[in-house]
Structure formats: structure tokens, C-alpha cells
Design a protein around this nucleic acid. Structure first.
Length: 149
DNA sequence: GCCAACGTTGGC
DNA sequence: GCCAACGTTGGC
């Protein structure tokens, strides 16, 4: 999952312990969130950052449910075509797990042939993406994570 | 700030 | 249903 650190950084999640992943307004990204199960691990990626990088690990603690901001006319995420009876957009809740000892910059990821087919490289603008098992393993190893799949 | 790669909207 | 115009994301 991607977040701009000047909007919501991994450090913010570390402070909050858990958070609601709201504001997703792309159907593909939403569908990937709907597929998430409680206990799934989440790679936290800082986009629009210096450098943009994989910075840590979170965990799904609540599965998809309607995004409250879509009903709020004062919210940036307001969607006039959505209603509580027919919500369009979902959130999941995630909890902080770990800040990686060695963040993996996009430059590093692109330089590693093992990540050549990762969505982060091939589908750059999608804000919620699935991570394949072998990519997850390599990310955890390269980032110096204390966790192992 | 530029621009490539999408995704969305709406006229027809 | 097609497609042109427009908007957004995010790397550089």
C-alpha cells in the first residue's frame, strides 16, 4: 500500500498503532483491498518521497468496509454518486508491525532483477497492489526485517 | 515542473 | 460502444 509520507507516513502509523486506509478512489485498488484478509501483511511504501521507498510492514486488522469519507460533502474524498445504501468505496484497517532497518528505495528495487515483474515496477500508479509470496520473502530479507514468511 | 501512463467522463 | 478530452499519479 502506498502513502505519501507528507500526508501519512509510516511513522504516523507507528505512533497511532492502527489506522483506517481511507481515500482510495480507484476501482482496481479498491478491489485489491476487498480481497485482503485479517492477518495479511502489508508492505508500506512511501510515494512522492525522497527517496520513494518500501519502508516497513503493517497488518490488516479489519477487512473491507465502506469508506465514511465518501459520504461527507466536506471531505476531499466525497463522492456525490455514492450513498450509504450503495457505497462505492471501501477502507481496511491496518496496524503497525515494523519499520524496516534498511528501507528499499525504488531505485534499488528497479535494479534488482528479482523485482522486475513486481506491480510496483510494472503498474507504477496503482496505490494498492498484491505482492507475490517470493517478492515478499525477498523484501523482508533485503530490508533486514525481523519477520519471515 | 514536466510528462508518461493510465483512468474517467461524456458527446455522439 | 467508441474515442477525444481531461484529470490524476508519481517518478524524475
Amino acid at each position: 500500500m502506498k502513502s505519501e509520507p507528507n500526508v501519512y507516513a509510516l511513522a504516523d502509523l507507528a505512533r497511532d498503532k492502527r489506522g483506517t486506509w481511507d481515500g482510495v478512489r480507484n476501482y482496481q485498488a479498491r478491489n485489491f483491498m476487498r480481497a485482503m484478509k485479517k492477518g495479511d501483511w502489508v508492505i508500506f511504501y512511501h510515494s512522492n518521497a525522497t527517496p520513494s521507498a518500501i519502508v516497513g510492514l503493517a497488518e490488516v486488522v479489519k477487512e473491507a468496509y465502506p469508506d465514511a469519507t465518501q459520504f461527507d460533502p466536506t471531505s476531499e474524498g466525497y463522492d456525490a454518486k455514492s450513498s450509504p445504501q450503495a457505497p462505492r468505496w471501501d477502507v481496511v484497517d491496518v496496524a503497525f508491525v515494523e519499520t524496516f532497518a534498511t528501507p528499499l528505495s525504488l531505485q534499488t528495487i528497479k535494479a534488482d532483477p528479482a523485482f522486475a515483474k513486481m506491480a510496483l515496477v510494472t503498474r507504477a500508479r496503482l496505490s494498492v497492489q498484491p505482492v507475490e509470496h517470493h517478492h515478499m520473502q525477498r523484501i523482508l530479507a533485503c530490508a533486514g526485517s525481523t519477520q519471515r514468511l
